[in-house]
Simulated assay, not measured.
Amino acid sequence: MLFEEKRISKLREILSDYSKFAVVVHSHPDGDALGSGIAMTHYLSGKGKSAILIIPDSVPETLAFLTEGEAFVDAAKFPAKATACLKECDVLFALDMNGFHRADKLEQVLTDCTARHKVLIDHHLNPELSSFDLVFSEIQISSACELLFWLLMELEGSAEALPEKTRYGLMTGMTTDTNNFANSVYPSTFEMATMLLAAGVDRDDIIANLYQEYRENRVRALAALLKDNLKILPCGAAYMVATNAFLQAYELNQGETEGLVNIPLEIKEVKISLFLKQEKDHFRVSIRSKRGWSANVLAKKYFNGGGHELAAGGKLYYPQDIPLPEDVYNYIQTSVAQFLQKDTQR
């Protein structure tokens, strides 16, 4: 992957001239956010820098293996510490977010941060260029982890030169964001994987941690969702809604519904799949689609969100978007049917 030499030179200069770094990722962190965050902090530490990872809220239990034994700040639990770290840093790296709004309650603190440099490394649409003085943004790439990998290759030349935990984090984040190489995969993605495997990354351990360590509750909840909750509309859309009552009945933890949205796409007639999870005053919406149908456009138009062409997310608020939580079903059926009936969305 080719990067503008001027930007690479500036990155080298920043890494050389400063000693205190903060790394922040988006709220409700997924594997790509945590993987890139861990990878970057270990890379910086390996260069003798002071580096701290700041996460806007708690790490999902399903991804806790990534942060086990790591020094990081949960900003939701320790807001004063997170603020202090951001005030003290010389350089702020923002990973896997296109702007500070993706950090939710941490947005204002990040905006007010007086770091000498703010650097964005991200693969989403519409980066907030005005918030950063150095931006590496690329949408034709699998993940923030892959983008970071190729930046580090520009700096170091080989995967073997990277710290072990940097390599592990990068492979993990790329694996989760591609749904284990099922979508958003490019030739460069396979090249990255090959280089990391050759450098000694234990992919079997990553796969075991990601996909073979679920609690029984999660598997039984999945069975119930598919049997009793999955709805398939004549227009070719599928959706599942996990209400508070359902989540409590199966005692599901944060992160345990991750990936469920992909399953209905296995059905031939399904063009687009939605998974909605109820939270305090809204439903968190995950959208996945097959080629020819834009998850990103659907998320933008109907769910206050956005993302990638085949993978996007958003939120549906009540009472702003729907009067009551139970109105979510009619809203989905109406909005998705309208969306799929318009050939302009193909």
Rank of each mutant, 00 (worst) to 15 (best):
A82V: 02
A82H: 02
T83Q: 12
T83A: 14
A84Y: 06
C85H: 10
K87H: 11
K87V: 02
C89Y: 09
V91P: 00
F93E: 03
A94D: 06
A94C: 12
L95K: 07
L95E: 10
D96K: 04
M97D: 04
M97S: 06
M97T: 03
M97V: 01
M97R: 03
N98D: 15
G99T: 05
G99P: 00
F100V: 06
R102G: 07
R102D: 09
R102K: 09
R102H: 11
R102M: 11
A103T: 15
A103H: 12
D104Q: 12
K105I: 14
K105D: 15
K105A: 15
Q108E: 14
V109E: 13
V109H: 05
L110I: 03
L110V: 02
L110M: 03
L110S: 03
T111W: 04
D112F: 03
D112N: 11
C113F: 09
A115I: 00
K118D: 05
K118R: 15
K118Y: 09
L120R: 05
L120M: 13
I121G: 01
I121Y: 09
I121Q: 05
D122Y: 12
H123G: 00
H124Y: 08
H124P: 00
L125D: 10
N126Y: 15
N126H: 14
N126S: 14
N126G: 02
N126A: 13
E128H: 14
E128I: 08
S130H: 12
D133M: 04
D133E: 08
L134A: 04
L134V: 02
V135T: 14
F136V: 01
E138F: 06
I139Y: 09
I139L: 06
I139K: 13
Q140A: 11
I141G: 00
I141K: 04
S142E: 05
S142Y: 03
S143T: 06
S143W: 12
C145P: 00
L148R: 10
F149C: 01
F149E: 06
W150Y: 15
W150P: 00
W150G: 01
L152C: 01
L152D: 02
L152I: 02
M153L: 11
L155G: 01
L155P: 00
E156H: 09
G157E: 07
G157C: 06
G157F: 02
S158P: 01
L162Y: 07
L162M: 12
P163H: 13
E164V: 09
E164P: 00
E164D: 06
K165S: 10
K165N: 11
T166Y: 11
T166W: 10
T166G: 02
Y168P: 00
Y168R: 10
L170Q: 06
G173A: 10
M174N: 13
M174Y: 08
M174Q: 09
T175R: 01
T176D: 12
D177S: 04
T178M: 07
N179E: 07
N179G: 15
N180W: 04
F181A: 02
F181I: 01
A182V: 04
N183G: 04
S184D: 15
V185P: 00
Y186W: 15
Y186C: 00
P187R: 08
P187Q: 03
P187G: 00
T189H: 06
F190M: 15
E191R: 15
M192I: 03
M192C: 14
A193T: 13
A193L: 13
L196M: 10
L196W: 10
